[in-house]
Amino acid sequence: MFRSGAIWAVAALAVVGSVSAAYAGPTLDAVKKADVLKCGVNTGLGGFSIADSTGKWTGLDADVCRAIAAVALGDANKVKFVPLSAQQRFTALQNGEIDVLSRNSTWTLQRDTKLGLNFTNVTFYDGQGFMVPKKLNVKSAKELNGATICVQTGTTTELNLADYFRANSMQFKPVVIEQQQEVLGAFFAGRCDVYTTDRSGLASTLKNDAPNGGADYMVLPEIISKEPLGPAVRQGDEQWTDIVKYSVYALIQAEESGITQANVEDLAKTSKDPAVQGLLGTPNAEGKTSGNGEALGVDEAWAVRAIKAAGNYSEIYDRNIKPLGLERGINALWSQGGLMYSPPLR
């Protein structure tokens, strides 16, 4: 009995040992050796990662992948997009199928710790909201007691909904459907009074799916959950974590410093602003560079490539999220009343 137990323990250790050994190696070296960045994205979410009619991946999350590839490999096109379902995403990161996960994943404490991940930044602050037909004459989510609510399965949306109604001691009747199109169909056919999902999803629904261009529907002011979305990497490779983290911060700082996809190469040669010089790795008056690239383990032009690849954060936002019908809101720069804030890149 004891012996067989011991054998199993050894076998289990061997498996665990070999598994963790597989990830201990520096990710950057592996990425360079493969000469491609394996980036986990959503199988299709408008604005974040979606294949356009020609099969090219577009969206905020896809652009983040390109920026990271531009930093790590020097070429924004060296990305292998790995479309992942919600169930697959964290396992795919753990088992090394992908190098970075950029798939509208909410940063939570337990994911950051127990799942062995590191969330690096927030690229989009989302939150769950409610949409109702205007004829219902509801002005606040607090008036929704007894409502029938359309919700998609298998997401935190369902849990948040139940929590919110319990906290406010209200009743609701859920209509739970798996496919997004079918949820929308049910809602617009009047099977439920309310539709709930993330604010970004509501905005896009109002603009694209609602009949009459959304004139008969409205989004209620309450936001019932915090959904900070951002890229994640495996724990235990600090260098790689830093590369992903500062690739994203470079995009945010670029917006703040007025660096765009169009002018980044000129500014890299001509700018006299120390902050810009530091970010873009331009030698200052004394001929010294900031050394950011060396500190990250890449070359000094890393940020130039990232910005050249994807544009600064506002360019990425305007290209991908704005067409959904969503204004910047809390995703604006800190200097404009939002939450987007990069630490000094020096």
Binding site: G44, G46, I50, Q180, N208
Partner: peptide, 26 residues
Amino acid sequence: VIIIGLFDLFGSARLAANDPAWRPFY
């Protein structure tokens, strides 16, 4: 095979229908 991220005929039709602008016509 869509659940492991391979887009067969049905999967790519779903992918096409995820485009927010064209979504109502899935």
